[in-house]
Design a protein around this nucleic acid. Structure first.
Lengths: 195, 195
DNA sequence: TAAATGACAAAATAAAGATATTGTTATTTG
DNA sequence: CAAATAACAATATCTTTATTTTGTCATTTA
């Protein structure tokens, strides 16, 4: 088809994300995405093995740029109190999840969907986040701010102990009136375990 | 119908539970349950407002006798270390959930189902469990074993911080090889917050 | 000749009609 | 007359068929 080529993976992902957002995950076909790009749908199979693979790629890219990267920026700051840094990191994770659940429901649903079936991709995403926490905790331990221990194990525990506040299966609880004070109490509990 | 009457709510719940267990939640109709009891299906509507109400009642009774009551027994013990008692209580909760997820999958699915939609009934069940934790923590505080604080708030925090290990949405994670050490680390984190 | 196409089979989804279930109530029965 | 029934309407589920979508691949195009 006469068109501004070449067609890249990223162009397809951009198109897929837009169409997915407009029609929702249930109603978008790969033909819809191909139409949007003005190519034949067969072409997309040259770039992605299956519709599922395409959806996964959209979700993965979204997780990276919307969640992991902004958090990485926080985790990389190597000055000031690790306690405050850790708190900011977890608060930001929670805030972003809450925000996207409301503001970007179609993509959030796709993410929640792959999460409950725990795909490889989600496992890697979570692993990356836990590594970020570990790096903050490690710094806090070296500064004598946190008591010495296995940073990796503690990081995973911090992630798990706060799952009520960021795991998509609990999204319906996030509209509770007491959710913020609940987090506050959990946080105090966790924090005194670190000190 | 010529039968050993009268028909009680509990008889219906017994029958419903058996039929539900045999056919699974998707495949059992109220006609199936009525057949099992050798009564007309209309009769069941004399005792329960709807099929949903009947299913809820089955789930509620199961939660009470399989989860809340055994835990109540542990929470009521007023001797020995509150630390150990709290640990036993939480371990028992986790162990029972894991066990029923495998051994009683049909009922567990019904329970998981009403949980994600957080019905009133589940909210009450959770409230009851948190009260049990609070009573243990209160005793620990009075004995000087835990530092003084709002027992109710802390109890909720303990419940929430351990949800990865007992909330049905996380059931698929329970087969992880590291689940026990993960819990161990979370528990240490929480416990030092109590002391 | 690398990339896209279009024609095709297989699989999934949608639509329509038939069947079964849920829920109500007037009637029956012990 | 209290409790169960049986007949009924409204809803939901299943079944069958038609349509669409997914995925493959031989052919075309730049």
């Amino acid at each position: 088809m006469t068109n501004d080529l070449p067609l890249t993976k990223d162009m397809i992902l951009d198109a897929a994300e837009q169409v997915l957002r407009r029609y929702g995950p249930d109603k978008t076909s790969v033909i819809d995405i191909a139409k949007f790009l003005q190519v034949s749908h067969g072409t997309l199979y040259r770039h992605f093995a299956s519709k599922a693979a395409l959806r996964e790629a959209v979700t993965e890219r979204w997780l990276d740029k919307s969640i992991a990267e902004p958090l990485q920026e926080i985790a990389d700051r190597a000055e000031g109190s690790a306690t405050e840094q850790l708190r900011l990191w977890v608060e930001t994770l929670i805030e972003k999840k809450r925000m996207y659940a409301v503001d970007d429901p179609e993509i959030f649903v796709m993410y929640a969907d792959v999460t409950v079936r725990i795909g490889d991709m989600i496992a890697m995403h979570i692993h990356r986040l836990i590594k970020q926490i570990a790096s903050i905790i490690e710094r806090g331990m070296q500064a004598g701010e946190f008591k010495p221990d296995s940073a990796d194990a503690i990081a995973k525990a911090v992630f798990m102990a706060t799952e009520s506040f960021h795991h998509p299966a609990h999204a319906h609880e996030w509209s509770s009136e007491t959710i913020d004070e609940d987090f506050e109490t959990v946080w105090r509990l966790i924090l005194s375990g670190l000190k």
